[in-house]
């Protein structure tokens, strides 16, 4: 991805290629995933009767995929410098591990 230039850069720069269509497609994918997320607890309670652990695992997996899509396409980590991704993803991995640990410790019924 190209980087922005200085504050006083001349304005006659070549325009970039628009990715608007891709962003709209990504939006609809995220929208559908959010809909599935909302539906999972309701459908599980009324129809599926899956184990709570499976429901939680599904929700966490969907959340992680949604987050990864936002980071890759909207925050442009896909195609940007790897260092930026490392700086951001490392804390996320730490937090997810910490969260799983706390689920195990304090919400044993979900484990």
């Amino acid at each position: 991805m190209a980087h922005g230039h200085d504050e006083h850069a001349p304005i006659e720069h070549e325009a970039h290629h628009s990715h608007a269509k891709l962003y709209v497609i990504i939006f609809f994918i995220l929208l559908v995933m959010t809909g599935i997320e909302i539906a999972i607890p309701i459908v599980n309670e009324t129809v599926l009767h899956m184990a709570k652990q499976l429901e939680v695992a599904l929700l966490l997996a969907l959340m992680t995929i949604k987050g990864a899509i936002v980071m890759m396409f909207y925050m442009h980590l896909k195609g940007d410098r790897r260092m930026f991704g490392t700086l951001f993803v490392f804390p996320i991995v730490c937090v997810l591990l910490m969260m799983l640990g706390f689920f195990a410790l304090f919400q044993p019924e979900l484990w």
């Binding site: 922005g4 230039h5 200085d6 504050e7 850069a9 304005i11 720069h13 070549e14 970039h16």
Partner: peptide
């Protein structure tokens, strides 16, 4: 503009 968008980014 296309040459100066860092603040927006």
């Amino acid at each position: 503009n296309a040459g100066n968008y860092m603040a927006v980014e």
